[in-house]
Lab assay of single mutants.
Amino acid sequence: TLKVHYKYTVVMKTQPGLPYSQVRDMVSKKLELRLEHTKLSYRPRDSNELVPLSEDSMKDAWGQVKNYCLTLWCE
């Protein structure tokens, strides 16, 4: 499951381990945003700071799954 905080919160079913490009595509379609305006980030467990997502950091983000849910933020 993927939970995304935006102006409102959406929850989507997804497969764990998807690459950033696929996750961003899913989120942009769900929120009806243009792909270039979809910026995603996540919060590591040991931090209060949001970390921007990229293809490289997506593996780390999937490591933050809690209760089968990855929580992301969209700007």
Score class of each variant (00 low, 15 high):
residue 1 T to I: 08
residue 2 L to P: 04
residue 2 L to G: 00
residue 3 K to G: 04
residue 3 K to F: 05
residue 4 V to E: 01
residue 4 V to K: 05
residue 5 H to S: 03
residue 5 H to R: 06
residue 5 H to M: 01
residue 5 H to E: 07
residue 6 Y to V: 04
residue 6 Y to S: 08
residue 7 K to G: 04
residue 8 Y to H: 14
residue 8 Y to L: 02
residue 9 T to G: 00
residue 9 T to V: 05
residue 9 T to W: 06
residue 9 T to D: 05
residue 10 V to Y: 08
residue 10 V to R: 00
residue 10 V to Q: 07
residue 10 V to T: 09
residue 11 V to Y: 11
residue 11 V to D: 07
residue 11 V to P: 05
residue 11 V to L: 12
residue 11 V to W: 07
residue 13 K to F: 07
residue 14 T to A: 13
residue 14 T to L: 10
residue 15 Q to Y: 13
residue 16 P to W: 12
residue 16 P to A: 11
residue 17 G to F: 11
residue 17 G to R: 05
residue 17 G to N: 15
residue 19 P to D: 11
residue 20 Y to N: 09
residue 21 S to R: 12
residue 21 S to E: 13
residue 22 Q to W: 03
residue 22 Q to P: 11
residue 23 V to C: 06
residue 23 V to L: 09
residue 23 V to R: 07
residue 25 D to L: 10
residue 25 D to E: 15
residue 26 M to N: 08
residue 26 M to H: 05
residue 26 M to Q: 11
residue 27 V to M: 07
residue 28 S to R: 00
residue 28 S to G: 00
residue 29 K to Y: 06
residue 29 K to G: 03
residue 30 K to Y: 00
residue 30 K to L: 01
residue 30 K to G: 03
residue 31 L to K: 05
residue 31 L to S: 04
residue 32 E to K: 15
residue 32 E to S: 13
residue 33 L to M: 08
residue 33 L to D: 02
residue 34 R to P: 15
residue 36 E to T: 05
residue 36 E to Q: 08
residue 37 H to R: 06
residue 38 T to G: 05
residue 39 K to S: 10
residue 40 L to K: 05
residue 41 S to E: 08
residue 41 S to M: 15
residue 42 Y to A: 02
residue 42 Y to E: 01
residue 43 R to C: 06
residue 44 P to F: 06
residue 46 D to A: 08
residue 46 D to T: 07
residue 47 S to C: 08
residue 47 S to H: 09
residue 48 N to W: 09
residue 49 E to R: 11
residue 50 L to S: 01
residue 50 L to G: 09
residue 51 V to K: 08
residue 51 V to G: 04
residue 51 V to F: 07
residue 51 V to M: 09
residue 52 P to H: 06
residue 52 P to C: 13
residue 52 P to R: 07
residue 52 P to Y: 05
residue 52 P to D: 06
residue 54 S to F: 07
residue 54 S to H: 11
residue 54 S to K: 12
residue 55 E to F: 00
residue 55 E to W: 03
residue 56 D to Q: 12
residue 56 D to R: 08
residue 56 D to I: 07
residue 57 S to Y: 13
residue 57 S to N: 13
residue 58 M to W: 01
residue 59 K to L: 10
residue 59 K to D: 14
residue 59 K to I: 13
residue 59 K to V: 12
residue 59 K to H: 14
residue 59 K to P: 14
residue 59 K to N: 13
residue 59 K to A: 15
residue 60 D to E: 12
residue 60 D to L: 09
residue 60 D to T: 05
residue 61 A to E: 09
residue 62 W to P: 01
residue 62 W to E: 01
residue 63 G to C: 12
residue 63 G to Q: 10
residue 63 G to W: 06
residue 64 Q to G: 13
residue 64 Q to P: 03
residue 65 V to F: 07
residue 65 V to W: 03
residue 66 K to S: 13
residue 66 K to E: 15
residue 67 N to C: 07
residue 67 N to G: 12
residue 68 Y to K: 15
residue 68 Y to Q: 15
residue 68 Y to D: 15
residue 68 Y to C: 15
residue 68 Y to W: 05
residue 69 C to V: 10
residue 69 C to M: 06
residue 70 L to S: 12
residue 71 T to H: 13
residue 71 T to S: 10
residue 71 T to Q: 11
residue 71 T to E: 15
residue 72 L to P: 05
residue 73 W to S: 07
residue 73 W to A: 06
residue 74 C to I: 01
residue 74 C to V: 14
residue 74 C to L: 02
residue 74 C to D: 04
